[in-house]
Simulated assay, not measured.
Amino acid sequence: MPWRAAAWPALAAVCVLAVAGCAGSSRTEEDYRLKAANTAEAAASAVGTARLATEAAGRGNTTSAYASVLLGEAEKDLAGAEQAFTSRQPPDANADRIRGEVTDALSAAGDAMTAARIAARRGESTALAGHTPALAKAQDQLERLEERLS
């Protein structure tokens, strides 16, 4: 029976962590807007990392294998930011508009990053530079969105 006494605190800790990981609704439009701004900032950072990888590959300063890993990690960071944001419930119609703007920008960024990752995994290191403009555009869009929402 001593294992049962020790199991309760562990079970309680697991439950607390599970509940803490759930994203609830934002109570106000301002709170939602700030969360959207934070998401745009995190996404712009991930896209910036991908952009640096494509620029370096285009100059011949990195291998496509290394760029592939870097792009894959940046893509995971972007997906994590997107998942955390889209799991939030917008509190009103104005927040719905913000949600649409942010998810559109995240989608465009994701498409640009996926295309670059695919090129890197195919070993097309010199062609990676061709993905830099789309990544730059996505990064700029996210940065402008973050500034406007902050």
Rank of each mutant, 00 (worst) to 15 (best):
S87T: 01
A18L: 12
R99D: 14
T49R: 13
G72C: 07
T49G: 15
A56W: 04
A79T: 06
A116W: 11
G21E: 02
L11K: 05
K137E: 13
T39R: 02
A115L: 09
T86W: 03
W3A: 14
K35T: 07
I118W: 07
A42N: 10
R97G: 03
T39H: 05
A18P: 12
P2R: 13
G100L: 10
A127Q: 07
A105M: 01
A79W: 12
A105L: 00
A42H: 14
C15N: 07
E29I: 00
R59N: 11
A115Q: 06
R122F: 10
G123K: 01
T28Y: 02
A6M: 05
A74D: 09
D31A: 11
T39N: 03
S125Q: 06
G100I: 01
L145G: 07
V102L: 08
A138P: 11
S87R: 13
L34Q: 11
S26D: 04
S25H: 09
M1P: 15
T103C: 06
A81K: 03
G48I: 07
F85D: 05
A46H: 04
E41W: 06
T62P: 00
A74F: 09
C22R: 12
A13K: 07
V16P: 04
R27I: 09
L11Y: 11
D31Q: 09
R122G: 10
A53H: 04
S150D: 12
E82P: 03
T49H: 14
T86Y: 14
L106C: 03
L11H: 08
Y66C: 09
L11D: 10
E41N: 15
A119D: 05
A18S: 15
P91E: 02
R117T: 11
L70Y: 12
A43H: 02
A95T: 08
W8P: 11
R121P: 11
L149W: 02
R117C: 03
N38Q: 14
D96A: 08
A112D: 04
A81I: 06
V14E: 09
P133L: 02
A57H: 10
A134G: 03
P2Y: 12
W8M: 15
I98Y: 02
M113F: 11
S68C: 00
A127E: 08
T63H: 00
A105P: 07
R4I: 13
K76Y: 14
D77S: 14
V47E: 00
T54E: 06
K76N: 15
A127N: 04
R97H: 04
T49D: 14
A79E: 10
N94I: 13
A43Y: 09
R121D: 05
R122S: 01
A44D: 04
A42S: 12
R4S: 13
G60R: 03
